[in-house]
Computed example of a mutant assay.
Amino acid sequence: MTDAVKGPASYFPSIEKKYGRPVAEWKELVRSSPLTQHMELVSWLKTEHGMGHGHANALVAHTLAEGK
C-alpha cells in the first residue's frame, strides 16, 4: 500500500492535465523566470499562462522549496 501524495505535489496531475505541460516543464519556467518572490511568481503564472491561483501557488511553493 502506498501513501497518497500530499501537499503541493498533490496538484501536479491536474496541472499537467489542465495546462498541457509536464510539471518538470512548469518548474523549469519558474526557475528561469527573473522573478524570485513567491507571490510575484504566482501572479506571473496566472497572468502570463492562465493558471488558476491554487495550481500556481502549489507549483511555486514546491519549486522554491526544492532550492532550499
Rank of each mutant, 00 (worst) to 15 (best):
41 L>V: 02
42 V>Y: 01
6 K>E: 15
63 T>M: 00
3 D>C: 08
39 M>F: 14
16 E>A: 11
62 H>C: 05
29 L>F: 08
16 E>R: 04
42 V>W: 01
65 A>S: 12
6 K>R: 15
21 R>A: 13
39 M>N: 13
6 K>C: 07
55 H>D: 10
58 A>Y: 02
47 T>A: 14
38 H>F: 10
41 L>D: 00
29 L>M: 14
52 G>D: 09
5 V>N: 11
65 A>W: 07
49 H>I: 00
40 E>V: 02
56 A>Q: 02
9 A>T: 06
66 E>L: 09
3 D>G: 13
44 W>N: 09
51 M>S: 00
65 A>G: 06
52 G>M: 06
24 A>G: 13
56 A>E: 05
38 H>K: 15
27 K>S: 08
57 N>L: 09
26 W>G: 01
35 L>H: 06
18 K>G: 06
37 Q>F: 10
62 H>F: 10
13 P>Q: 09
68 K>N: 12
46 K>L: 01
66 E>M: 08
23 V>L: 12
20 G>Y: 10
52 G>E: 10
64 L>I: 09
13 P>M: 06
34 P>R: 13
53 H>F: 15
36 T>W: 11
30 V>L: 02
30 V>P: 00
56 A>P: 03
14 S>N: 14
9 A>E: 14
17 K>H: 10
51 M>H: 04
35 L>A: 11
65 A>K: 14
60 V>T: 03
30 V>S: 00
1 M>P: 13
36 T>E: 15
11 Y>C: 07
20 G>W: 09
21 R>F: 11
48 E>Y: 09
35 L>G: 03
29 L>Q: 06
1 M>F: 14
48 E>T: 05
41 L>Q: 02
57 N>S: 14
12 F>R: 07
26 W>T: 01
10 S>T: 08
51 M>V: 09
52 G>T: 07
44 W>V: 00
8 P>S: 09
32 S>I: 00
18 K>N: 13
10 S>F: 06
31 R>N: 11
36 T>H: 15
6 K>S: 13
36 T>A: 15
46 K>M: 15
55 H>R: 06
28 E>I: 07
5 V>R: 13
40 E>M: 11
13 P>D: 10
30 V>A: 01
49 H>A: 06
32 S>G: 08
54 G>I: 05
